[in-house]
Amino acid sequence: MMSKNGLLHRRAVVAELLRERGDLLVVAGLGGPNWDVTAAGDHPNNFPLWGAMGSAAMIGLGLALAQPERRILVITGDGEMLMALGALATIAVQKPANLTICVLDNERFGETGMQETHTAHGVDLAGIAKAAGFATSLTVRKPDEVTRLRDLAHSGTGPIFAQVKIDAEALPFVLPPAEGGILKNRFRASVLGEEAFYN
């Protein structure tokens, strides 16, 4: 699960987080996290984003409030999360017990030429989430901590935040459907049943 420079491999992290995923609902932020989640297995209970940067955590909150009996896992990147730091305050105030936000932090804007993000210069996302009021906020660097995060995402008391330090590797894209209508309809049919099409 570790690279030569001692950092976690992102696809191994996501594969572990989604191991025996059950009825877990997943929102994937644009770019690398979308391809990682899809590499672990395209699934109707995934809502992978191809745009709307900064939306992933708040989509997770709306979903968590609407589906309080289900577990919601947002997997996004450090650049995407940095664009929505206010969302951490909003989520902390709402205290959704069923929501986990996992940031795959390669300290880079990976899709645009691997430019450094703020986390490369010491900005501590887990610290920001903790200060905002997240019940649990972790920095994850080791495989056993990934397994612990997987268990928290499935059964811990949220809101849970995790900043997972990963290797800045460039991997082949693994693409889910791109059309928004398909992603929306398959997700709603899976979560709500086909009666969702008749309202």
């Binding site: 609902l25 929102v27 809502f47 709307a52 900064g54 939306s55 992933a56 955590a57 708040m58 989509i59 997770g60 909150l61 709306g62 979903l63 968590a64 409030l65 609407a66 589906q67 289900r70 929505a84 206010g86 969302a87 305050a89 909003t90 105030v93 709402q94 929306k184 997700f187 709603r188 979560v191 709500l192 969702a196």
Partner: peptide, 22 residues
């Protein structure tokens, strides 16, 4: 009632709400 720090949070929130049936 979900108080936002900026309005675009609400657009994303309500996208998630609809995906979850609300």
């Amino acid at each position: 009632v979900v108080t936002l720090t900026t309005e675009e949070e609400g657009v994303a929130l309500l996208a998630g709400a609809w995906l979850g049936g609300e």
